Amino acid sequence: MATCPAPARQILTQIRNWVHSLAAGMDGVGPLDESLKWGEPAWRPKSGAGTTIRADWKAKTPDQVMIFFDCKTDLIDRTRSLLSSELTCEGNRAIILPLDRPLPEDAIKTALGWALRYHLDRKAS
């Protein structure tokens, strides 16, 4: 994160803050493991309630930050079908956040919440 431009660093910090805040307020999620996966900041509930969330900025796509979910989940398909008016998805694993636009906070928090409770919600259905 230290090598990315200030606007990207601010967005990544905001995503981190949202992940921690959401996890603390969601039943069954609890504390997070915070680590680096593939050199990217990553968060996963210690409880096993959800799947890993990663976020990063890449020099090859300098005008955006990406939030990554496990490609074996349906999280990007769900985001694409239910939040496509607010969020752009790439493939089956990333949400694209352009640096030159305001963050769609509610939509991002919805997608992050789905990831934090992914396994709990699948068991309940």
Rank of each mutant, 00 (worst) to 15 (best):
I11Q: 07
K109R: 15
G39W: 03
D121T: 09
M1T: 14
D106R: 13
A42I: 01
C71N: 05
D106Y: 12
K37Y: 03
K46H: 09
A94Q: 03
L82I: 12
A2Q: 09
R117N: 09
S84M: 13
Q10M: 14
A8H: 03
F69M: 06
I11A: 04
I67T: 01
A59H: 05
Q64R: 11
W18A: 11
A124H: 15
A23T: 00
K37E: 05
A2I: 10
T88G: 09
K37G: 06
L32G: 01
I76C: 04
A6H: 13
C4G: 11
D100G: 09
F69Q: 01
I76R: 00
T52R: 02
E40D: 07
T61G: 05
K37A: 08
R78T: 14
A23V: 01
A111S: 15
R117F: 09
W18H: 14
I96N: 02
L82G: 15
E90P: 05
A2D: 12
G39F: 00
L22N: 05
K109A: 11
D106Q: 15
P5F: 10
L103F: 10
H20G: 13
L103G: 09
L12M: 15
G30Q: 03
I11Y: 08
K60V: 04
I96G: 03
L120F: 03
S21Y: 07
C89H: 08
V65Q: 02
R54N: 05
N17A: 13
